[in-house]
């Protein structure tokens, strides 16, 4: 009950030179929840992810992962985060198993344990039979599934996904969405899912609307849309036409 949320972002402002990318952003992701971060391209989603994962330093405000401040205790905070970045981050020349082993090592997990965990996760994402195939030989959707598996390898409490379905076909998108929702439901992983695609968000999902660096709304998707279509509610609030869902 008193356990801190998987992610708590408070009053974070971040600027690149004179451009304010994030302005007093606050949000939280409760443990075991699916929270969608909705915003068009340029809303500041990737900047926020970069701050949470400490690729940038949050100069103002605070970011805590399961109670660990990413500035004061970056190690314990990062150890509890799994990330799927927008850009592909697997080594295409290495096999799935080699990629998993490398990632595990970067989290201090030894070879035998890495193999055991990695194989279990590859089985879970339905790619264990391709374990010794180079990543370059996989389709876009398969690569994404491997990236999800890899992000889970060190048993994170918080999984961050930055537009994970961009560039995937309909079937592959559905697979990735299903996989991540199952992780929330069955394993209790907290997920922050950044997207600009409305059809990936369900009525009961927690929703944070980010627009031009500001949080415009927080609540469930149903509360936000108020019975209307989510896209319409979004346009009404931001005045921005959403991008067509792929």
């Amino acid at each position: 009950m008193s356990a801190p949320p998987a992610l708590a972002v408070e009053n974070v402002t971040h600027a690149f030179g004179k451009v304010t990318a994030l302005d007093q952003v606050s949000l939280d992701v409760p443990r075991g929840s699916f929270t969608a971060l909705l915003g068009v391209n340029g809303a500041g989603k990737t900047t926020l992810f970069s701050l949470i994962t400490r690729l940038y330093d949050n100069v103002t405000g605070s970011i805590r992962v399961a109670g660990h401040d990413v500035r004061r205790a970056p190690g314990p905070a990062l150890a509890r985060i799994g990330v799927v970045f927008q850009s592909r981050a697997l080594d295409p020349g290495l096999t799935l198993r080699q990629n998993m082993a490398y990632h595990a090592a970067l989290h201090g997990i030894g070879r035998a344990e890495a193999r055991e965990r990695g194989d279990a996760l590859l089985a879970r994402v339905g790619l264990i039979e391709r374990a010794d195939t180079p990543v370059a030989a996989l389709s876009g959707g398969q690569v994404r599934r491997v990236e999800v598996a890899r992000a889970l390898l060190h048993g994170p409490q918080l999984l961050l996904l930055d537009e994970p379905t961009v560039g995937l076909d309909v079937a592959a998108r559905r697979d990735v969405v299903r996989l991540v929702r199952a992780l929330v439901a069955e394993d209790g992983v907290a997920v922050l899912w950044a997207t600009h695609l409305f059809d990936e968000i369900e009525a009961t999902d927690r929703l944070v609307v980010l627009h031009l660096g500001k949080v415009l709304a927080r609540g469930t998707a149903a509360e936000f849309s108020g019975g209307a279509a989510l896209a319409d509610a979004f346009v009404a609030m931001t005045g921005t036409a959403p991008e067509a869902a792929a």
């Binding site: 994962t53 690729l55 990330v83 970045f85 981050a89 990632h103 970067l106 989290h107 201090g108």
Partner: peptide, 18 residues
Amino acid sequence: ETGAMRTLLVSPFPRWFL
């Protein structure tokens, strides 16, 4: 450029060590 750098930098170990 490919994003593989992020994999290295989000490791929980200190950056000087990595």
